[in-house]
Every structure is written in C-alpha cells, then in structure tokens.
Design a protein around this nucleic acid. Sequence first.
DNA 1: CCAAAATGTTAGTTTTGACTAATAAAGTTT
DNA 2: AAACTTTATTAGTCAAAACTAACATTTTGG
Lengths: 144, 144
Amino acid sequence: MKKLSKSLEDYIEAIYIASEGKNFCRVKDIQKVLNVSKPSIVNALSILKEEGLIVQEKYGYVSLTKDGERKAKNVYKKHKIITEFVEKIFEVENVDAQKIACEIEHIVDKNIYERMEKISKNFNERTKIVLYGEKDETDGSKTR
Amino acid sequence: MKKLSKSLEDYIEAIYIASEGKNFCRVKDIQKVLNVSKPSIVNALSILKEEGLIVQEKYGYVSLTKDGERKAKNVYKKHKIITEFVEKIFEVENVDAQKIACEIEHIVDKNIYERMEKISKNFNERTKIVLYGEKDETDGSKTR
DNA sequence: CCAAAATGTTAGTTTTGACTAATAAAGTTT
DNA sequence: AAACTTTATTAGTCAAAACTAACATTTTGG
C-alpha cells in the first residue's frame, strides 16, 4: 500500500496502457508507451514486483496483479480527467494536454481532480465565454 | 540563458522572496523560505553563481544579478498567477493552492499561465456557478 | 578583546532514475 | 536444427538533489 514515486506511477500506468485488450504485455510494449531504455524499464519492473503490483517470469510477459491494476486504473483515470480539463479550459491540443496531464497527475489530490471532472462535464460554449470574459448577452454584469 | 532545473527555479524564487524589500539576503533567510539544509542551499548557490544569476562573497550576502532578478520575477509571477487560479477555480485554501502552484509553476508554459491570468481576472460568483453547473437563472440551456 | 553563538562551507553519503555496452534467452526462418 | 533476429537482462556509470557531521568564519555580548 506504499505510495509510489512519480516515475513508478508512470510505469504502472504505461503497463496498463500497453496491456490494452489483453491482460499482459512485454517490456518492448512498455517501451513504446514511455520513452525510456529497456534497462530502465527492467529496473522499474523489479521494484513493482517487490511491491506486489505486477508479476513477470524471466523473459516473460508482464501482467498487473489485482492491486497493481487498481493503482494503474487510478492513475490512468486521473490522467484522462486532467487531460480533458486542460484541453477544454485552456483550449490546447490533445497532445499538449497529455503532456501537461502526465506531470500534473502526480501532484493533484482527489478533491482537485474530482472538481476537474465536474467542470469538464459541465463545460460548454458558454462556459468558455464566461471564463474568458467575452461579451455574454445573457448577462448584464461587468468585470469592471 | 540556459534553462534552470525545477529545483534551481525554486531556489532563485526563494532568494527573491527572501530579499523582499532589500536587494540581498542570507543563506539562513533562504532556508526559512525553502525547507532544506544549509549545505543544499550552498550547493545550489554555487550553480546559480556559475550561471551568473547571483553574486555572493564567501560568508557574505547573496544577491541577484540583473539576469537573476529577471528569472526570479518570472518564476514568482507564474507562482502567484497559478496560486490565484487554483484558489479560485478549485476553491481551496491559499496554503494548499501555494503547494500546488509550487509544482505546477515548473510545468506550464506561457500560453497556459496567461490564460490562467485571464480567467482569474474575470472570475466572479457567476463563473463559479457556470463552472460547476449549478442552476443559473440567467440561462435557459442545460448541459443535457 | 576574546569566548560563545550564529552563520556558512566542505566533505562525504544516499537515493532515485536515467543511460550504454555487453550478454543471455526466446523465437523465427530456411 | 543452426543461424539470425528479436527481446530481455545484467553490470556498471552518471547526474541531480537531497542529507549529516565536521569544520571555518563572522558577529556579538560580557
């Protein structure tokens, strides 16, 4: 139940993504998702094994344990929520929002990303107008 | 003109804060702002000296050069903008917003924090209502 | 003015997370 | 099944950023 480091969170998230559809993946699949060398991955895997978050036989497939999957889903969910929030609120490309989400996902707590989720859900054209203070016919008030 | 690491950005920002009012500060003042050991600070200072961002004589005062002050102000400005944004948008205490800002300030680019600034400027009660999708009398539309 | 307190520096470690080069195992092809 | 290709691992390095303990300098108070 120990808290993972940022980098290990990235790895477990990558394993989850690389396993999409199946319930296992290979080191090289992880490599495609993250952009790091294989030895770096092997090293991270050894820690995740110790923590009981993945299983892997030597030269074999990597798969998440129950615990590992729970953590991975958690991180991944945050990632998606943050990406959507950043995309909508700041009007940036998905690729850029992804990059920002990758970093922020290790920082914000539950309260914050649940609020991001709510905001994203309610987001529409008018939100944008209100946010950036452009003229809004439905309202008489001014920001002064 | 080299890009500083996150940690060095924190140090230079701390120097700026610790020098408030004066144009110099001491190692122990920096220590009050950041929460790190003196040797860590000394080490960071040695790098900032190499980069020409501060000057300090042995056992003497630390002060920012023109370049250093420019960078420091930049980081500090980002910090303030992000803090305000987080406080308002997510309705969190200033202390918590500060913590988040400390981390995000090293991540987001100019485009993003300028947008944060705009949003903060325009922020009012109605923004909050629109953001979180509560009932808004002035509007007939629904988020579906 | 000199001893104690406050402040700053040096030296040496530690941890984390990355890398390259070399090696080993597994899989594929003919 | 031997040779070749792909994939994974090991071993050894490196850099950033922190720490503690020991030492050096400056400041201050009796």
